[in-house]
Design a protein around this nucleic acid. Structure first.
Lengths: 204, 204
DNA sequence: AGAGAATTAGACCACTGGTCTAACCGGCAC
DNA sequence: GTGCCGGTTAGACCAGTGGTCTAATTCTCT
């Protein structure tokens, strides 16, 4: 995680650094991004950079976390408070649709997420993986628990397993949806189909 | 792809190079692997290495392709010739179980595949992606088509979409299954649960 | 003003994947 | 045998990488 010193910087300077990093990471992915390019664009010296961040991964993790936070802030996704399975899944579908719409509208964030989704588990990115999971997993776990409580989600398998499979399905769907230029009606239909598959896979 | 020259080499030399590369890639993943380490272990000069292979990716693609081929050779997985949905899914489950057993028994291959699965779509690996897809995708596509023909798989969604989702589920399940040390009875039960979820998601 | 800490700059390091040229070697023509 | 020539090999070399280190600067507080 970025050292506290970084957050003590004037916010415009923070912003300039993080913006440049976002540009670089979303354009080239983690592996292809060049730290030297980032510092030369921002004018920050290498010494300062490593005074603020532990490593390239650390910077990446911070950029990613910010984008995920912004996403969750722009599209609030409360854990569904439903009493019945159909309602539960409708709420989920609405969440997903809103999220995908926002991603379509912010291609840079979408590119960053795509890179992260497809390369996340590589050993070099455990830090980023971890920091983004902190934002995502608890929500998913809570939602699964809520679904189980009202009988919308099966309880015969370990929740961990269900969550892993849902994450996998979600990544595949995200990638499939993001990668192609989408028109509105298609998007809604595709999201409906995606959630339907999830529902079938894990419903009680 | 490896240049033809490489295959003209004495097969023991080919083997030594590919073994060293497999060691390196499975131990450190694609990004962490060092070409210099591979050539220093094998005693092959850098000039020769680049005379045989176009690039690091090219070598990786070749190593990966070999392992996938070996896997499919050791565990034949014919497209199910079933006439009824239950039978169809039983055959699939049998295939998957056999494959996972082999992977558990060959951890090096499992490590290589895990790295590939989790990092495959990163731009640097398109070559490897492509070469391994050639081995995997057609089979999956055929199997989906076979399932659709006998009414075991839904036809209301694009096959591409189903395949993408199945791949995502498969990756998640593979990872979940490989990552934990498995005892036999658990493995069978987990595989059964995994295939069951796939079946629910895509059945007609 | 002066001491001491926080911060910055950028030279430097080992290493990376990849290129290039000079040497080498086997086989064929004379 | 000699000359030659194409396929092959060795390894010096290159620009660039992420990361470290130290000396200088700036800031703060007494």
């Amino acid at each position: 995680m970025a050292r506290p010193r970084f957050h003590a910087l004037p916010s415009e300077r923070q912003g300039a650094i993080l913006d440049a990093a976002l540009d670089e990471f979303s354009a080239h992915g983690f592996a292809g991004a060049s730290l030297n390019r980032i510092i030369s664009v921002t004018g920050v010296s290498k010494g300062s950079m490593y005074y603020y961040f532990d490593s390239k991964e650390d910077l990446y993790a911070d950029v990613l976390r910010r984008q995920v936070e912004r996403l969750f802030q722009d599209v609030p996704l409360p854990v569904p408070e439903a009493t019945e399975a159909d309602e539960f899944w409708n709420i989920i579908e609405g969440h997903y649709l809103r999220l995908m719409r926002l991603l379509v509208a912010t291609p840079q964030t979408a590119a960053l997420l795509r890179d992260w989704l497809t390369g996340a588990a590589s050993p070099a990115l455990r830090e980023a993986q971890h920091s983004a999971e902190q934002a995502t997993l608890p929500w998913l776990a809570e939602t699964v628990a809520a679904g189980q409580r009202i009988g919308a989600i099966r309880t015969d398998l370990p929740a961990d397993f269900l969550i892993a499979v849902l994450l996998g399905m979600g990544q595949a769907m995200d990638t499939w949806l993001i990668i192609r230029p989408l028109t509105e009606p298609e998007l809604a239909a595709d999201v409906h189909a995606a959630i339907d598959m999830m529902r079938r896979a894990v419903s009680a």
